[in-house]
């Protein structure tokens, strides 16, 4: 097993797993407690437009997806709050619009679009060194923003109306949070792909919630879960020669199921025990 670590692609994969866990561990907690899973999924899928744009312009698709995902976040955040149609309908429309744009861009690109599948489904075993640096830079931005806005984000997620009354520009703060989610999605793309990103944003954070009632501890625990589980997933996918992104999600779901069932059983016993005692 240890000789594997000499391969640079394995080293890159582990580094990518750690960087991805940091981003999704911290931001996933906001996604889960503010219950904005659906809009986050929308931003992720709409970002495919940016991948297509990158191919069309002949640049690294990662450079297409950064501005495009930020734009999707701003448009979705604004339209879903301001438009007359229900928020989830607005998100659904923009979600598919972004994907459709991506498909048209890819179609219009002369020749063949290499690696298209890695953007859709991820492939952590082929992460280029450059993408690692990009992920590192985005991680720094994400951690920095959360450090600066910690008290504002907590207040926003807990009670948006009261936070507005306190004079905090909550509308802008919400858009900022969506933009940070967009950047997190970019960090996660190479690991699990656009289609599966939402699993990394929700499962570790939901798991961590079972162990603590403190937001910062939730972030730490979900980074830990994400890291350990994605490294396990990488190992399994290498050993069994199956796609890495999907393997990571399967392991995540499996662990979640175990923990949920385990806690349910413990709870059940606690309750019946209490009933039996006088």
């Amino acid at each position: 097993m240890f000789e594997l670590l000499q391969y640079s692609f394995i080293q890159n994969a582990l580094a990518a797993a750690v960087l991805a866990s940091i981003a999704c561990g911290i931001i996933g907690v906001y996604v889960v407690v503010k219950k904005i899973v659906f809009i986050s999924g929308g931003i992720a899928h709409a970002s495919f437009g940016g991948i297509g744009l990158g191919y069309y312009l002949g640049i690294n698709p990662m450079f297409g997806v950064v501005p495009f995902s930020l734009l999707s976040a701003l448009v979705m955040g604004t339209v879903s709050k301001k438009s007359k149609i229900p928020e989830d309908s607005a998100i659904g429309i923009l979600w598919s619009l972004g994907m459709a744009l991506g498909i048209i861009f890819v179609y219009l690109t002369p020749g063949y679009a290499p690696d298209l599948m890695t953007y859709l489904f991820g492939n952590i075993l082929t992460v280029p060194r450059f993408d690692l640096y990009l992920m590192l830079a985005l991680d720094a931005v994400i951690v920095g923003a959360v450090y600066l806005f910690y008290k504002e984000f907590l207040a926003l997620c807990f009670d948006e109306e009261f936070t507005t009354v306190q004079g905090v520009p909550t509308q802008k703060l919400y858009l900022l949070l969506l933009c940070i989610i967009a950047l997190t999605i970019v960090v996660l793309i190479k690991v699990v792909g656009i289609i599966l990103v939402i699993a990394l944003l929700t499962i570790p954070a939901t798991l961590s919630r079972k162990f603590t009632h403190n937001l910062k501890q939730m972030m730490l625990i979900s980074i830990l879960f994400g890291g350990v589980i994605s490294v396990t997933g990488i190992g399994l996918s290498y050993a069994l020669d199956v796609p890495s992104g999907a393997t990571i999600i399967l392991v995540l779901s499996f662990v979640y199921g175990l923990v949920a069932v385990g806690m349910e059983m413990l709870d059940g016993r606690g309750v019946s025990g209490a009933k039996n005692s006088p």
Binding site: V29, V33, K35, L154, C157, F158, T163
Partner: peptide, 17 residues
């Protein structure tokens, strides 16, 4: 949301923003 990860102290502090 009874599960929201925030303490009484953190809630009251938001009144200071």
């Amino acid at each position: 949301d009874f599960d929201f990860p925030i303490s009484v102290w953190e809630v009251v502090l938001t009144g200071r923003m």
